[in-house]
Structures are given as C-alpha cells and as structure tokens.
Design a protein around this nucleic acid. Structure first.
Length: 232
DNA sequence: AGTTTGACGCTGCGGCATGG
DNA sequence: CCATGCCGCAGCGTCAAACT
C-alpha cells in the first residue's frame, strides 16, 4: 500500500513517513502540489495525506478533488485546532488526524478510509451497533422496529452510519447525498437531518430528559460550524 | 387503452424561537 | 449576533382511480 504525502514542513514529513513505514505503508513524499498531482495520474497511491498547512490546504484539497475525484481518500494531518479541522473537512477532506495524538490514530483513519474506498460498490446493508441499514428496502432496522426512509434520508443515514462516531462535514454530506456541492441549501440539509432525527428517535421529544429508554436511539449530534456526527 | 384528475409523499425553502 | 432547531408551506413528481 502506498500513501502519497504533501508535507512542506520537515517535522510533518518526518512524522508521516515514520508513521506510514511503521504501519507497513510506503510513503510517497512530496513538498509541492504539482508533482503530487502528476504522481497521482499514475496508478499506485492508495491514499493521500496532506499537511494542514495554513490556508494552503484549501487550495490543495480543491485541486486534488478536481484531479483525483472521489477515488482517492484524502486525510489531513494537523494540529487539530477547530479552524483547521473545519477548513479541511469543508474543503472535502475525508478525515482529519491530529499530530499530537501520535501515529496510531493517523494510521487507523487512513486504513479505514482506504478500506471504505476499496469496498468500491456499496454493500447492500450496513451495521452499526444494534442498527442495520438496508439498501434494498431503504430502511433502518433495530431488530424489533423497522423504519422506512426516503431516498435523501437514506443517503444521509448511510453516510452518517459509515462514519459512525466521526464528524462528517456538511460539505461531505452534500457531496455524498446530492453528488454535488455548494448549490444545495444548508437549510435543506438541516431539514433532512431534522426528519431523520425524528425517524431515528420518534419518542425523542417526549422522552427528552428521561432515562427510561430500553435501547438508546442513535443521535445525530451537531458539531458547531463543521457538520454532524452520529453516536450510538 | 389512453387521458385526466385528485390524493399523497418528497423536497426544498422561509420564518420564528432558542441557545451559545 | 449568529448558528441551529423546529415548524409550516409551496412546488413538484408519482401513482392509482375515474373517466372518455
């Protein structure tokens, strides 16, 4: 497995190369965007790792999405400040790893992203804890209860379940659900999140603040200014 | 069989309330 | 003040029943 990196800072370059080699990946290091894009035209790289390098990362992500499409997972490595995370995810990064967390979380995130891409054709069902999403019936089952979802609701649920416990940016959700970005109103996405919340937890409003639930419903948590995260 | 009509559901947006 | 949650509404598409 090869991971192309774009790390202008020596410390980031050293960290990523060491982490990747330690996990059995072969790093393909770059310090400038254009050689990286040229390298990506050739088959070989399984993922891209970008340094969160100030505002430059925004341009890199746009350019990479343009040239590499959605085929290659892109993970951004940075200091983990909210501005950086927000910037990276909104610009189309698949995930964000924090330098201070060490090599292990970075490798886990990369591996998960590579695996989800490698799956290629979507599976027909997706499990997350006690819940299953079924593409054939466009429904969510909890064992006893089965909830049918509309097309948009299902796409939204699928994207969130695929990224269980991780923040999914509104940008990513728009791309995954509508297949395009930018021209989908933010309010529209919020409306679908609201509808999905109602279906995931129909008693939620009544039960709010009470502790009697037998099976906790999945919760779609808003991450202020970034996106949403599904938690069980 | 083909067309029209009405009911229904889905999608997207506007407006208001709320909370950080 | 701004982002978000929530509710309501209009436009549109789909589908089945009624009609020609």
């Amino acid at each position: 497995m090869k991971v192309a990196t774009l790390c202008p800072s020596r410390s980031f370059e050293h960290f990523s190369a060491t982490a990747l080699r330690g996990a059995g990946y072969e790093p393909l290091p770059h310090v400038h965007l254009s050689p990286l894009i040229a390298a990506l035209r050739e088959p070989g790289a399984d993922a891209v790792l970008l340094e969160d390098h100030d505002t430059q990362v925004e341009g890199w992500l746009s350019a990479l999405r343009l040239h590499a499409g959605r085929a290659l997972p892109i993970v951004v490595l940075g200091l983990g400040d909210s501005v950086g995370i927000s910037r990276a995810l909104q610009r189309g990064a698949d995930d964000y790893a924090v330098l201070a967390d060490g090599a292990s979380p970075l490798i886990h995130r990369l591996r998960a992203r590579i695996q989800s891409r490698a799956d290629g054709v979507r599976a027909t069902s997706l499990r997350a804890g006690p819940y299953s999403l079924h593409a054939s019936t466009q429904s969510l089952s909890t064992g006893a209860r089965e909830v049918s979802l509309t097309a948009r609701e299902f796409a939204l649920a699928w994207t969130l379940f695929e990224n269980l416990g991780r923040v999914v940016s509104t940008h990513t959700l728009s791309t995954e659900i509508w297949g395009r970005t930018g021209d989908v109103g933010k309010r529209t996405l919020e409306q679908h999140v609201y509808k999905l919340r109602l279906k995931l937890d129909p008693d939620g409003r009544r039960a709010r603040g009470l502790q009697h639930e037998t099976m906790p419903a999945p919760r779609i948590q808003t991450v202020y200014g970034v996106g949403y995260r599904l938690e069980l």
